[in-house]
Write a protein that binds this DNA or RNA. Structure first.
Lengths: 272, 272
DNA sequence: TCAGATTTGGAATATTTATTCCATTTTGCA
DNA sequence: TGCAAAATGGAATAAATATTCCAAATCTGA
């Protein structure tokens, strides 16, 4: 049994197993069948657990992994873990490595941002709180005035929201602090505020949220963690994480959430 | 610290952490914050890995788990593992789930924007003119002043560029037309203008480009076609297309190109 | 049927990981 | 300012897990 192919992915492993399965003796066959049908559990189960479930001895499972050309169960588990784990790739390290090698061209950097953007978008599909999203749309569809606040890095998100809502003829005020004038007084009881802020959380946005809540407005927060300082009592939190590229972040997830939110509101208002 | 509540689910744990977080000392706080924001990784990671990522000692993490009323990290991991084994659908499944909620739902719209964003990023990778990108970076790295213009839908891109360049201490003026005042007079011979405009091409941006060229500035255009009205003689064109969702567009490609451009310029300036 | 080859189960061993313990440092309060 | 309490880092220890080894059982082919 000479294994020329390096098994790099879970699929490689499953394909290999399917190929050799017909010629396997008893226990080896059981191992193969079990792994194929329960591959989603490999990432977080021990040899002992897996072999018990497969009705084989632990050493049988070890032998099976050797037969696949792997050094052991651990190597197989690592491959499956990599695919199941939702940890963001370490773009910061990748960037420093590129920089250290003097290999940091604009096109390489663009590729990193594209990758980070893609990852952020995909991750958002599993992390978004749909109940809160629907609740936010409902509130925004009914309110007389939408206030939008997002400074510094979050300002593109705020301006995008404001532009989109205006195109849809939804009354909104984008609080841009022109002339360093904050206009809390424009907020009325019953209005809704959309506040966008991400680590390290601009103080002005936090203050704005506090003032808004005091005035009886409802606040919808676009932010990157449940323990964000804007997650105050009664705030509807839409968690959205954009991954870092060095000291910066792709804005892909948050800006697309903003667009989807605004267009949903526009649609909902047409039906009221 | 008497813990009466039995923590049975991942959510119980996260809720408990959020409650005690404000009163925690240094390392305990770090542990709590890390777990809340990376709870999807607990199932797959060792104490050593987690504590390294959280920048605490392993024993700190152990102490934190004790403070939650758990017997240790293993008990916490078991709880999260139990929930992972039935969750974790892949991206395609998550997308379908979002799309299944009804044609006008916010989640379906979000799914559409996510897909549009991913597609736009993918497309940009194959369509970007690398020669022009490098040329643009070179010019931007050498100029005394960068002027940025992008109105209406392109304004988030302009503001994102401006913010990023400012963070990198690159001199730039974002022409935002506050009070409907355009400031062509600030443009000097030798300056570089980044103009972002996409169909249907804001008249103000076209006029700005014309004025800039007259004044001897170099213009870099972020636009969606070679036949864009800003593709005037001598303009360096960076073509970037964001795909439509109904009457709107995901901004993913253009905003990530802007980020990559700005960061490249920052890097290039550090080497001059 | 028998002998050699292959497979198997499980004990022993090695490695990895979780946990405990304790000296030192830091914090908070009178 | 000083002291007691709390927090911390890290080494030592315990526990869990992966792996290796080998005697016994089973299979295969002449």
């Amino acid at each position: 049994m000479q294994n020329k192919e390096q098994l790099k992915s879970g699929n490689d492993i499953l394909e290999k197993i399917r190929k050799i399965l017909p010629d396997l003796p008893g226990r080896m066959r059981q191992c193969g069948e079990f792994i194929v049908s329960h591959h989603d559990q490999i990432a977080f189960s021990t040899v002992a657990e897996i072999s018990t479930m497969a009705n084989v001895q632990p050493s049988a499972m070890m032998r099976f992994c050797s037969q696949l050309g792997l050094s052991g169960y651990s190597e197989m588990q690592k491959i499956f873990r990599k695919e199941v784990s939702k940890a963001a790739p370490d773009y910061a390290t990748r960037l420093s490595n590129l920089q250290a090698k003097g290999d940091l061209s604009a096109s390489k950097l663009l590729a990193e941002f594209v990758e980070a953007g893609r990852f952020s978008l995909e991750k958002m599909t599993s992390e978004i709180n749909i109940k809160n999203l629907d609740h936010a749309v409902d509130l925004l569809a009914r309110t007389e005035m939408i206030h939008i606040v997002g400074y510094r890095r979050a300002f593109p998100i705020a301006s995008c929201l404001s532009y989109t809502l205006e195109k849809l003829h939804v009354p909104n005020i984008c609080h841009d602090d022109v002339g360093k004038v904050s206009k809390y007084s424009a907020i009325r009881d019953g209005d809704v505020v959309i506040a966008a802020t991400f680590a390290p959380y601009t103080a002005g946005t936090i203050e704005f949220v506090e003032k808004a809540l005091e005035k009886g407005a409802t606040v919808i927060a676009l932010t990157d963690t449940e323990i964000s300082p804007v997650n105050m009592d009664g705030v509807i939190l839409l968690k959205v994480v954009d991954v870092d590229v060095g000291d910066f972040r792709s804005l892909s997830a948050s800006i697309n959430l903003a667009m989807a939110l605004a267009v949903s509101v526009g649609n909902a208002r047409e039906q009221i």
